[in-house]
Design a protein around this nucleic acid. Structure first.
Lengths: 221, 221
DNA sequence: TAGATTGTTAATCGATTAACAATC
DNA sequence: TAGATTGTTAATCGATTAACAATC
């Protein structure tokens, strides 16, 4: 596999390729072209070819890509050949919802522990996981070789949780709290705050409609 | 307000500015510089100034930005001056979790209806919303002037839900299902599938650690 | 006046797309 | 051989950053 600086945009697309390829495999499709992929994933075929070519020559001219082989390669690139252990802090509604995604994450990742700082939540069962107190985080992270942390606590607690994860040796964090976390350079953080996504959608609403429906939007007194 | 092509990257940052500015306002901070904002939000101050300057001259040289004024302006740009109505389809764990975010969305948006296609869910109470059957979607969307739809159903149902939203006149969709939706050009879709984010994090894991712990990762047979 | 900070231009950097020779 | 499709180069497009005159 070649080594060079890979752009973030490319890395963000790899899981999307992987997801669709897995679907193709289930449907017993053996081969796929960048054309097909582009159509399905709303991407330019040239971009897909270029993305994949960063990591090696995975296709065959005139034929396309072998689905099974490409899946294997992408999992290798993403370091998903061994299942990665994940821990989650914040056993609220969102945390509980995400804890149920193990079946979807399949062989790639597994949420192995759930923590919460607040007594009413501790000891509660979510799926087959018992909510643990924050005091056990460091030990559990080390014992299970947890490498990624998910944060689903309120904004004002998120930085503390991030610190705890970093201290425990977690290498990456997926942050659902609406706040920008400060972490050392060697720790990667992805923001997953859905309210940001939702509010930005408003920009694209059709302005024409604004005052269309009569009486729906009276002047402010 | 100037008119010109605004990049998606800029629009994605506006809600992040808005969020922090709102926090500043609650703390009764009156003025903020691009320097301050950049430090807090991990962005280049020049970028912040440029982002804002696309829409007008909101700051004062030598002083910075008036917090209240900038909030007002950003809400205007994002068309959040009137509360926007949102509907959600999929009353599973994730859907229920998101339905509870109204307090956080404040004056900006409001989830006004929740739908599900499956009888056991229908009639269920989530907060003060009753889960409605899909048959009522179109009418409810029109009655409440719902402009944004949220999809939290399994992947295989997501396209149907998107179609229903589009038919009902929804202008934008936030899609949590792990699938790429096909919609007409005038409808905006943002992907919010967290498994994609999570898997892409794996790429940034520290390779050095891979075979560090002895015996943890035996060779395949 | 001196210091701070904007708005904006120019320079740089990065990502996407088009085009096509190579080849299955 | 003819058609399809990759891998890759070059061209284009878009986003970020540096630098600084204007000015509070």
């Amino acid at each position: 596999m070649k080594t060079m600086k890979i752009s973030e945009a490319v890395v963000r697309r790899l899981p999307i390729y992987l997801r669709y390829l897995t679907e193709l495999q289930q449907r017993e499709v053996l081969t796929v072209s960048s054309q097909d992929l582009g159509l399905k994933l709303d991407l330019n075929p040239a971009q897909i070819r270029k993305d994949l070519a960063y990591f090696g020559e995975f296709g065959r001219k005139g034929i396309g890509y072998d689905v099974a082989y490409l899946i294997q390669k992408i999992r290798q690139i993403l370091k998903l050949n061994h299942q990665i252990s994940v821990a989650l802090v914040g056993a609220g509604n969102l945390g509980q919802a995400l804890s149920n995604y193990n079946t979807y994450l399949k062989d790639n990742m597994k949420i192995v522990a759930v923590f919460d700082a607040h007594t009413p939540k501790i000891g509660k069962k979510i799926n087959n996981l018992t909510v643990q107190p924050m005091e056990e985080l460091e030990q559990t992270v080390r014992d299970h070789n947890v490498r990624i942390g998910i944060i689903t606590v309120p904004a004002f607690e998120a930085q503390n949780v991030a610190n705890a994860f970093v201290n425990a040796g977690v290498e990456a964090i997926l942050n659902f709290a609406p706040v920008i976390l400060k972490v050392p350079n060697h720790v990667r953080v992805h923001a997953a705050d859905f309210t940001t996504d939702l509010l930005s959608l408003a920009y694209y609403l059709d302005n024409g409609k604004e005052d269309e429906e009569d009486g729906e939007e009276p002047m402010d007194h």
